[in-house]
């Protein structure tokens, strides 16, 4: 479904601030895979997201969706296949437009936009049914401006807008990080539900190790632009937060020793 091959990204190349944001990343997602990506700040998680979404052109490497090379496709063209939920709850919706208008715009994601009404009677009914699945009462507020909603409600709406058109790839970019714990839990549960219901191929970046363990069938740990640890299936289910921390320290220590040998 999604193949990321030999991706490398260097920022500020040739200056003292040179930073290898991604260093030869390879990752492949089968249809229905739900991969969680963890790592500390600056590990390259967001850069990887931006490369897949088309916001950033990698220095080398390929991105394939359904076997089709997309690395040179611009972001808006690629978003016909990719749905993305951002970290900022304000980023995924248009505040001065109504809930139904926002849904109508999202409904056009994988179609050609035409000169016909965006919100029709038929669509209104459909939007209502989708909104009911959120259990937030938004189905009764179709004509309310989205700017009036709370951060949690807006993020739930963003998640719905991204997923109800069944994208080939779903990218979740720390989409619960900016919410308070109870709202974050709500969005996490919703995520679990929609991904399972539609069997979406998903890549989720998170800071939260527990969340990375609770969700998905595969886990990837990144550090300094590299993938340093992977687990899937039964191995992933058995993992605990302590295991992950331990694993991280073990791998990094080995590298530290290596570096000392090289430098020494």
């Amino acid at each position: 479904m999604l193949d990321v091959k030999n991706i490398s990204v260097v920022f500020n190349e040739g200056t003292v601030d040179e930073k290898k944001a991604l260093n030869n990343i390879n990752i492949s997602l089968e249809k229905g895979d739900f991969v969680t990506v963890i790592g500390s700040n600056g590990a390259g998680k967001s850069t990887l997201m931006n490369v897949i979404a088309g916001q950033l052109l990698p220095d080398v490497g390929d991105v394939l969706i359904n076997g089709k090379q997309v690395v040179h496709l611009s972001e808006y063209k690629r978003s016909r296949f990719i749905g993305r939920v951002f970290q900022d709850p304000m980023a995924g919706t248009a505040p001065s437009m109504t809930i139904e208008e926002n849904l109508a715009m999202a409904y056009s994601r994988n179609k050609k936009r035409k000169l016909t009404f965006g919100v029709t009677k038929h669509r209104k009914k459909m939007f209502k049914e989708y909104l009911q699945t959120l259990n937030l009462g938004l189905e009764d507020r179709l004509t309310a401006k989205v700017g009036l909603l709370s951060g949690g409600e807006r993020q739930a709406l963003s998640l719905l807008m991204t997923t109800f058109t069944d994208p080939d790839i779903l990218l979740l970019d720390e989409h619960t990080a900016a919410l308070d714990p109870s709202r974050a839990e709500l969005i996490t549960d919703l995520t679990k539900k929609v991904v399972a219901d539609a069997g979406l191929t998903t890549l989720m970046v998170t800071h939260n190790m527990q969340q990375a363990l609770d969700l998905g069938n595969r886990l990837v740990m990144m550090d300094k632009g590299q993938i340093i640890f992977e687990a899937s299936g039964i191995d992933k289910q058995r993992l605990t937060v302590e295991d992950l921390l331990h694993e991280f320290q073990r791998i990094r220590k080995v590298q530290f020793e290596d570096d000392r040998v090289v430098l020494g």
Binding site: Y76, A94, M97, M105, S108, R113, L115, G118
Partner: peptide, 26 residues
């Protein structure tokens, strides 16, 4: 025009450009 699919996308450019780009609008 501003209520058509194209018109909604144009309004979204003034409201949240990043969002409408991620919804495949040129």
């Amino acid at each position: 025009f501003l209520k058509t699919e194209v018109g909604l996308a144009i309004r979204a450019i003034g409201d949240n450009k990043r969002m409408i780009r991620s919804l495949s609008a040129n």
